[in-house]
Design a protein around this nucleic acid. Structure first.
Lengths: 158, 158
DNA sequence: CTTATTGCAAACGTTTTGCACGTTT
DNA sequence: AAACGTGCAAAACGTTTGCAATAAG
């Protein structure tokens, strides 16, 4: 009955489904479906793994130069998507955040301090302990974040 | 054989011992023992719990206005102390870091998202699992951070 | 007298905001 | 037409840096 850690890297839903989900979100909040928002969603769907707002900005700019999408729009759309649970982020302190399409289940991160690689894991035992600890302190748990830092196998070889 | 979580809030060593430790650190690195550095250490010793560099800055400024200690000195001293392991910090992403006298053993944090209160805990099971996960991924683990967010008992009552 | 440290202000990188103009509905 | 979204530039935020002046050893 042992649960193993899993690494999920590819989107679990089709782009059409994701797009429909997004449009639904917009409609039900009286928000508008703009080219910029679609471009951002599309770029994220096709991009595996984590990225910074800046990286996304440069990518969008190169793919759709005619729209002159501003970085403010990137940030605004990323917030929108994060609040809606479509996208998730990891914080790196002063160095900012990295985002990824968040259609996946909850997970934590293990990060290489040398090359910056980010891997994901889910550990039932840790999840359980966290809930237990929150309960012991009388907290209503809302969220948690956990990051393990270290040197990845590839970087160890160098 | 069950290990319970512990909350430690008061310094475990006398100020004299801490000061001696600090002076020793400075001496062995050819660094100088300045009034500013002593004031900062002293303020931290007498302050229970976590604080931002900004808070420390305002406190020092009000206690020793004649020195006109700059915030850069606060940051520089905090880095120095953190590197030496005398002080530890928790990161709050874009909102910056909070520091505390770090003479205590390693611990994680549980944070109230309503009032900002920070409590500390240490959980052997979580520590063990983390090491195991790092090993499974072939990582040499260097560090980790874990934060639980929720609503504290007091805030629930309101 | 040498070297480290300081305060100050300017620079930093990331993120947010105000606002006139454009687009979507 | 009404409302929302946009690009742009400026501001905000916590933090770091360059530098001439100052203090510690």
């Amino acid at each position: 009955m042992k649960k193993s850690n899993k690494i999920s890297t590819s989107p679990l839903i089709s782009y059409e489904t994701l797009l429909a989900q997004f449009q639904q979100l917009l409609r039900s909040n009286n928000l508008k479906f703009t080219k910029q928002r679609e471009n951002i969603l599309h770029a994220m769907y096709n991009h595996t793994g984590h990225f910074t707002p800046e990286e996304l900005y440069r990518f969008i700019k190169s793919e759709h130069p005619e729209l002159k999408t501003g970085i403010a729009t990137i940030y605004r759309t990323l917030s929108l998507l994060e609040n809606a649970g479509i996208v998730t982020s990891i914080s790196f302190g002063t160095q900012g955040k990295k985002y990824e399409l968040g259609v996946k289940a909850h997970h934590d991160h293990i990060i290489c301090t040398n090359c910056g690689k980010i891997l994901e894991f889910y550990d039932e035992a840790i999840e359980k302990r966290q809930e237990k600890i929150a309960k012991e302190f009388g907290f209503i748990m809302e969220d948690h974040s956990m990051k393990i830092f270290g040197i990845c196998p590839q970087c160890q070889k160098k």
